[in-house]
Computed example of a mutant assay.
Amino acid sequence: MAIRIGIVGLGKIARDQHVPVIEASPDFTLAAVASRSGGLPDLPYYSDIGDMLAGDDGLDAVALCQPPQVRYDAARAAILAGKHVFLEKPPGATLSEVKSLADLAQAHGVTLFASWHSRYASGVAAAKAWLAERTIRSVAVEWKEDVRVWHPGQAWIWEPGGLGVFDPGINAMSIVTHIMPRPFFLLDGTLSFPENRGAPIAADLTFRDDSGVPITAAFDWRQTGPQTWDISVDTVDGALVLSKGGSVLTIAGELQETAPEAEYRGLYDRFAGLVARGESDVDVSPLRHVADAYLRGARVVVEPFED
């Protein structure tokens, strides 16, 4: 029987990704929407999650697509109502609230899934498998895009908890934490804050793993023209490059064949499997690296940003 799921927060990512994937999935039925921005034809619509949970729609699960600053209360309400919960990335505004939700989900016997869509980019699994058997010399991440293209008019993203440039940057960190065979940690960094914003517009970070391999990451929201989403890994057997957000894989100069892009289909397949097995998946390692950047990175003030 298909899992009856409701979407909370019908913004761009929900309309572009969640809705079409759910509608095409054999595992899910889209049963209701809760949003301040309107609903979808022929579906029950609610203005908030409280009303949706009180409705008579037979929901088994919810997908939470609101900004992270308001997601905790919605997730808590859903868990207490016995619903499985899919968290858009990042899973929360703080590490502590995500830990609280994970404990609550375990206590109530429901699935909690902290989703990282970039891990399901078509080149990532093959990259992870290849690197597992290689000696790595260094890693360089370059994740630069135009915020005016990808997040126009979204004031929440510049507020504390909205992550700023780490909203896309955390996608890169979700890939690197997944493909690297050993954990790594921050050494230092610089976070550039527009003087009129509460979140950074750029960040330059330096990490190392426990064997001394250097890892650098450059995130910037001011890039115009072609966008850059690249991860380069130098190994003794040649360079591995994941480009275009992980969808294109090159190894030792040779382009690798990859499956068609289906990041959100991969997420929902994973969520369905977790629900079937009664398990949760709440990996916060990408968010932990962002928190470490705020803890250890030097703050510099740059020119104001106007949308």
Rank of each mutant, 00 (worst) to 15 (best):
A262S: 08
S243H: 03
G9V: 05
S285W: 11
D281W: 08
D204L: 15
M52R: 07
G246F: 03
H84R: 07
P68T: 04
T206D: 15
S232D: 15
M1N: 14
N171A: 13
F28L: 11
A259Y: 06
G253S: 07
L131W: 00
I231K: 12
L287I: 00
A298R: 10
G278P: 02
R4V: 01
Q256C: 10
D234R: 10
D103F: 05
R299A: 05
W116F: 12
F305I: 08
D42S: 13
E263A: 03
R137K: 15
A127K: 01
P181S: 00
M52Y: 07
G39I: 02
D56N: 12
L101C: 05
G82I: 09
T250D: 15
F166W: 11
D210E: 13
G6I: 05
K99D: 15
G212N: 06
L163R: 12
F28P: 09
H151A: 15
L40W: 06
S192W: 13
V139G: 02
P200K: 03
S192C: 14
R265M: 02
L131D: 03
R36C: 04
Y264G: 02
R134N: 04
P90L: 09
Q223A: 11
A126G: 02
E257C: 01
W150L: 14
I13D: 00
S247A: 10
T94M: 10
A202M: 02
P168W: 14
A93D: 00
Q223W: 07
V282S: 08
P214R: 05
I49E: 06
L287T: 06
G92N: 04
L187W: 08
I136C: 10
S37C: 00
R299Q: 12
D146N: 11
P181G: 00
E279G: 11
P26Q: 07
W156G: 05
P90Y: 02
I7T: 04
V85N: 00
A293C: 13
V300P: 02
V21N: 04
I3L: 13
D230R: 14
T216K: 00
S138D: 03
S243R: 10
P183D: 15
V275Y: 04
T228Y: 00
E279S: 12
T228Q: 14
Q223N: 15
D210F: 12
R182D: 14
E254T: 13
G238H: 09
M1G: 06
R288C: 02
P91G: 07
D27F: 07
F185C: 06
E133F: 07
V213H: 04
D283C: 09
V139C: 13
L191N: 11
A259G: 03
A74C: 01
A31T: 04
V300T: 06
A114L: 11
H84S: 03
D73A: 14
V300K: 08
L274C: 01
P260F: 10
P44T: 03
G273Y: 09
I251E: 09
E306G: 11
S100H: 11
L30M: 07
V275M: 10
K12H: 15
D188Y: 00
G92R: 13
S174W: 05
D42G: 10
G82R: 08
D269Y: 02
G58N: 14
V85W: 01
V8I: 15
I175M: 10
L186V: 09
L131K: 13
T177Q: 10
V165Q: 00
W221V: 06
Q106W: 08
T258S: 02
A77L: 13
I201P: 03
G162M: 05
S285K: 08
